[in-house]
Write a protein that binds this DNA or RNA. Structure first.
Length: 807
RNA sequence: GCGGGUAUGGUGAAACUGGCAGACACGUUGGAUUUAGGUUCCAAUGCCGUGAGGCGUGCAGGUUCAAGUCCUGUUACCCGCACCA
């Protein structure tokens, strides 16, 4: 009989659907396993071949865990708020909810078509009011805890999307999504105080099993540094507070720089002689987009403030103050002391403005030619009481000194900024607060949740930067829940990252209308045992959701500090690069190199597609999509099918294949755990080759093969298992192996002379070194190679090789 | 600039604590079956050389009986962050 993948796959997909095979109950008596993949944004384009790679990988893990006896939660849902849907809706004049539903249906059917073992009874959708009721509820918790606040601030504004972006969403000064120009705009925005959790987000990385590169990226993004804050008096009688990580270089400060947005400038405005010039520079800096600012970063610019000087507290010297956009208002205090001798940026600035460069740490080259920034080897000089100390010792001493004198203190700073949480868009969760003239910002009571989106005529984003909801009087005008007076609703919506910051909690109890999920369900299922997702979310979704989870932990909602026990990531699937034949690059519509999974499944089948995606290369690395490679795995499945028709009798493994069977079980079992799916598949292929050489499989051996194959290619495995053994393969126990039986009775050893292989021989396993050496020395090839030479050394590595060293 | 990563046949790639480099595939070549083949099967396939033999894991050194793997230096490419004081 022919391997009719189309008929087999639709048969089993229907079976799994009708029997709810992969539905899991909250059965608290069983050991649980929570496997999670990132839920997709259901775009209008449907799945592309990149999606199934992580999904198949975790599907393999989930299917294996079920066979190992775990109660497995492997859910799927839709991160469905977002700009593309809204844009599509605007263009085609369809409500975004309808577009979303259509896209979700397409995605769901495509995932079913790939044989993913998701529990479809637990599907969640971030745009469902029953879901976002709890997103809003969490926001109110944050608001009531003082972690959500509204602030007038300079934000990133995408000129194309006409929306505010979080720092994490700005890539190379452009919009992460549309690559449009990002400029700065001063707007009143909702902010979340993720910075309050900076230290915890950093510390608790020690307690989780993430890929090291993921941890490193988060550590760098959080960007903790220790230094000191120091107060400089000014000649106008007030004070200037700066932050430095090099307080040891205080004696080398020859000027100060403050950010163009620094508030002291306004304070000083009528006393400065060159206000026109300063105002012009401020305007210039404000107008620059992030992109321009990065472009310009080689050439330092700035303006000296005319009429004010700072006084260096360690030596009383008066030094000038500049404004320059290389100092950022958002970090530290927005002001620095400049030590050109020991900071590259300060050095460049000093050279340009002809400022003195004083060496205070010796050990480098001439500081007039290059800044000396090495902290490890330097020794203090020209620094009075610090002279002769190492940089580390000097830091300690000066910190003590400034604390004692009351002019400064030790200070920790983070690069992490608070999370800009407002978006001027229609298709997002409404922020459930109102503004009352009397009471200020007031959160809605829980009874008024969910606050749903009103129907509007136009979802168009506006050029003035206001939300499309802002023109809708019926939505805006409401009463204050506190005083009952007139109040206005917030018209901005939440960013897309809101719904995805807690979705893994909702899966544990997706239909609960009393709580976001029951305490018992949360306690049972969390933390997620294994979460796989893209590296691109490391400093976005992954960080945001850790923050929310930690907050919910502090509120007593969840009972573990970290949401994910283990986090891994996958590489991208690359397409052919049309510009460089033989090279590969990101798939994109504009390059016409996108591969559609529907066609692959139609032409080769879902099992082949799954196997190919796993066989293509190292799961963690980017992998090129090469149509030719699909044939190899298709052939493998055809061979499995063909061999099923010629099985020998046998209730146990044959002598010929026993060790091969045990070795393969071990290899496949271990490889799944370490994400080495490619070599797991290779091991099964090699087993087929072994079986061919042994004259085919017997029934016992083939049964095991199907169990190993089931997570990878579940349709063919289910079909053959039912046909041959009359049972369901997914109900079988995972195969076991015996370490002792993995070994063959004899092994081939290589014999080297001076490290070059000259001969080979077979010997019983674990033969001792003396025996091996004496056999090796008798071999004719070895005699020839050692003839007339002196043997200096004989090394034998049991079961591997013998090396004879001669002179 | 800082951080992370990669470099192995014609191609995708394997190689656990240093121990036979190239598993498993793709492709190619030859052969068989077939009216036919985007079928199946068999054989060969790292490079140079007719051969014995030599050379081979980006490059240059080093340690070792033995190095893709360890050490020093160096180049190229990819990804992230980027004036964070």
């Amino acid at each position: 009989m022919k391997y009719d993948f189309a008929a087999i796959e639709s048969k089993w997909q229907t079976y799994w659907d009708e029997h709810r095979t992969f539905h899991v109950e909250n059965d608290f008596t069983k050991p649980k396993y929570y496997a999670l993949v990132e839920f997709p944004y259901p775009s209008g384009d449907g799945l592309h071949v990149g999606h199934p790679r992580p999904y198949t990988a975790m599907d393999i893990v989930a299917r294996k865990r079920r066979m190992q006896g775990y109660n497995v939660l492997f859910p799927m849902g839709w991160d469905a708020f977002g700009l593309p849907t809204e844009n599509y809706a605007i263009k085609n004049k369809i409500h975004p909810a309808i577009v979303t539903e259509r896209n979700v249906n397409r995605f769901r059917s495509q995932l079913k078509m790939l044989g993913m073992s998701f529990d479809w009874q637990r599907e969640v959708n971030t745009t469902d009011p029953n879901y976002f009721k709890w997103t809003q509820w969490i926001f109110l918790k944050l608001f009531n805890a003082g972690l959500a606040y509204k602030k007038e601030m300079n934000v990133n504004w995408c000129t194309q999307c006409k929306v505010v972006l979080a720092n994490e969403e700005v890539v190379n000064g452009t919009c992460e999504r549309c690559h449009g120009e990002v400029i700065h705009k001063v707007k009143n925005q909702w902010m979340l105080k993720i910075t309050d959790y900076a230290q915890k987000l950093l510390d608790d990385l020690d307690s989780v099993d993430y890929f090291e590169k993921i941890k490193t990226a988060q550590v760098n993004w959080i960007g903790r540094s220790t230094g000191a804050e120091v107060t400089f008096k000014t000649t106008l009688g007030d004070e200037l507070l700066i932050y430095t990580t090099r307080p040891d270089t205080l004696f080398g400060a020859t000027y100060m720089v403050i950010s163009p947005e620094h508030p002291l400038i306004d304070t000083w405005s009528d006393k400065l002689g060159n206000m026109d010039e300063i105002r012009a520079y401020q305007a210039e800096a404000a107008r620059k987009s992030d992109f321009d600012r990065t472009e310009m970063n080689k050439d330092k610019t700035g303006v000296k403030l005319d009429g004010v000087m700072a006084v260096n507290p360690v030596n009383g010297r008066e030094i000038p103050i500049f404004i320059s956009d290389y100092v950022l208002m958002g970090y530290g205090t927005g002001a620095i002391m400049a030590v050109p001798a020991h900071d590259t940026r300060d050095w460049e600035f000093a050279k340009k403005f002809n400022l003195p460069i004083i060496e205070v740490v010796k050990g480098g080259e001439d500081v007039q030619k290059e800044a000396f920034t090495d902290c490890a080897t330097g020794v203090l000089t020209n620094s009075d009481f610090l002279d002769g100390l190492s940089v580390e010792d000097a830091k300690v001493k000066i910190k003590g000194w400034i604390t004692e004198k009351g002019i400064g203190r030790e200070k920790v700073n983070f690069k992490l900024r608070d999370w800009v949480f407002s978006r001027q868009r229609y298709w997002g969760e409404p922020i459930p607060v109102v503004y009352c003239e009397k009471c200020g910002w007031v959160g809605l009571p829980e009874s008024e949740l969910p606050l749903t989106l009103p129907d509007v005529e136009s979802y168009m984003p506006t050029d003035n930067g206001e939300s499309p909801l802002s023109t809708l009087e019926s939505f805006i005008n409401t009463t204050c829940p506190k005083c009952g007076g007139a109040a206005k609703r917030e018209t901005d919506t939440m960013p897309q990252w809101a719904g995805s910051s807690w979705y893994f909690l909702r899966y544990t109890d997706p239909t609960n209308d009393k709580e976001l999920a029951s305490k018992e369900a949360l306690k049972y299922w969390l933390p997620v045992d294994w979460y796989n997702g893209g590296m691109e979310h490391t400093t976005l979704h992954l960080l945001y959701s850790r923050f929310w989870h930690k907050f919910l932990y502090d509120e007593g909602i969840v009972s573990c500090k970290e949401p994910y026990a283990k986090r891994t990531s996958h590489g991208m699937i690359l397409g052919k690069d049309p510009q460089n034949p033989g090279k590969f690059c990101k798939m994109s519509k504009s390059l016409h190199n996108v591969v559609n999974p529907d066609e692959v499944v139609r032409d080769f089948g879902a099992d082949t597609m799954r196997l190919y995606e796993m066989f293509v290369g190292d799961f963690e690395k980017a992998a090129p999509w090469q149509e030719e490679g699909i044939k190899g795995v298709k052939r493998f499945l055809e061979r499995v099918w063909g061999m099923s028709e010629n099985l020998k009798d046998g209730d146990e493994y044959s002598d010929a294949l026993r060790s091969a069977m045990h070795k393969t079980i071990k290899k496949v079992s271990e490889n799944i755990e370490s994400l080495k799916f490619n070599t797991a598949i290779a091991a099964m292929m090699a087993l087929l080759n072994d079986a061919d050489n042994a004259g085919g499989f017997n029934r016992a051996e083939f049964r095991t093969l199907l169990i190993l194959l089931n997570p990878f290619a579940p349709h063919i495995a289910s079909e053959l298992f039912e046909k041959l053994y009359g049972e369901m393969v997914h109900e079988q126990k995972w195969a076991e192996y015996d370490e002792a039986l993995c070994a063959d009775s004899t092994v081939e050893l290589a014999v080297q002379v001076n490290g070059k292989v000259k001969a080979r021989f077979n010997a019983p396993v674990d033969s001792d070194s003396e025996t091996l050496i004496s056999i090796a020395l008798e071999l004719p090839e070895v005699q020839k190679a050692t003839d007339g030479k002196t043997i200096i050394k004989k090394i034998a590595v049991p079961n591997k090789l013998v090396n004879i060293v001669v002179k």
